[in-house]
């Protein structure tokens, strides 16, 4: 299938590209460690005052933090670089090259760029999760692991669709960088389970910017809180967002080629 073939191809090229910049590896390790320590200190501070936060214990919040780091890594490794590239391509006119290739244009623009050093965050997130799950002593079964992986995938898909929709706006308004910067800020809110926020913010973090589904829901899977309804809801919302993103992409392309103007 085109998706996996192109994904693999570009991943290979990106690895070759980035292996030339080894310094970046160390910079990234440093950055990730710093972020991890800040996160842990934050947790410690909160729990020096209380024993639970919105029904989540300290260890359970460590799970949330792990997922947050992990998903952040996925976003920065794959989603963000591709969307930034897409945006600059639209601005500079180099998108023309992608559009004259015999491949699905949406797939092509979504897998062309990887920042492999950012995978350190993925590894770091996994480590945090391992530690947290070990501390929880819940005994994670196959079903839970599976639902966690599914929830994670759905979350990544939602974030991707969301980001593609925003980036596609570049076809109408050429400068959308600031909108994307805004996402970084909103994503930070996902550090905590969305349940602790006021209702209006919860709704926003769930349906406007799907941070809840990207972070909180996978964390729920690992802490035994995930209900089938939530998982099905996540699947439905992912499907909806994907279809919407595809539609907006096509509409944007038509506009780009002046078919709808």
């Amino acid at each position: 299938m085109d998706l996996f073939r192109l994904f693999w191809l570009y991943l290979r090229v990106s690895v070759m590209n980035e292996l030339q910049y080894r310094v970046n590896f160390f910079v990234q390790v440093f950055q990730s460690l710093l972020a991890l320590i800040t996160g842990l200190v934050g947790l410690a501070l909160v729990f020096s005052h209380t024993n639970e936060l919105g029904g989540w214990s300290r260890t359970e919040l460590l799970v949330v933090m792990g997922v947050h780091i992990l998903m952040g890594g996925v976003i920065r490794t794959v989603i963000q670089p591709n969307m930034e590239r897409l945006m600059s391509d639209v601005q500079e006119g180099t998108l023309d090259y992608a559009l004259t290739k015999p491949a699905d244009s949406q797939i092509l623009v979504s897998v062309r760029q990887f920042r492999i050093w950012q995978t350190i965050d993925i590894v770091m997130g996994l480590l945090v999760l391992l530690v947290a799950v070990y501390q929880l002593q819940l005994g994670i079964g196959v079903l839970q692991t599976l639902s966690f992986v599914v929830a994670l995938l759905l979350g990544a898909l939602m974030i991707y669709s969301f980001w593609l929709i925003l980036t596609t706006a570049a076809f109408w308004v050429v400068r959308v960088e600031h909108v994307l910067e805004l996402f970084q800020g909103v994503y930070q809110a996902g550090r905590w389970p969305v349940g602790i926020y006021p209702a209006w913010l919860q709704t926003g973090l769930t349906f406007l910017v799907p941070v809840a589904f990207a972070v909180t829901v996978p964390a729920e899977a690992l802490t035994g809180r995930l209900t089938l309804q939530t998982l099905l809801g996540a699947a439905a919302l992912s499907a909806l967002l994907l279809v919407l993103a595809r539609w907006i992409w096509r509409t944007g392309l038509r506009r780009y080629s002046g078919a709808s103007a």
């Binding site: 090229v13 070759m16 590209n17 980035e18 030339q20 500079e92 006119g93 180099t94 023309d96 090259y97």
Partner: peptide
Amino acid sequence: MGQRNQLQWDI
């Protein structure tokens, strides 16, 4: 297009 590149820059 003479003014626009498509080859990967770093490899």
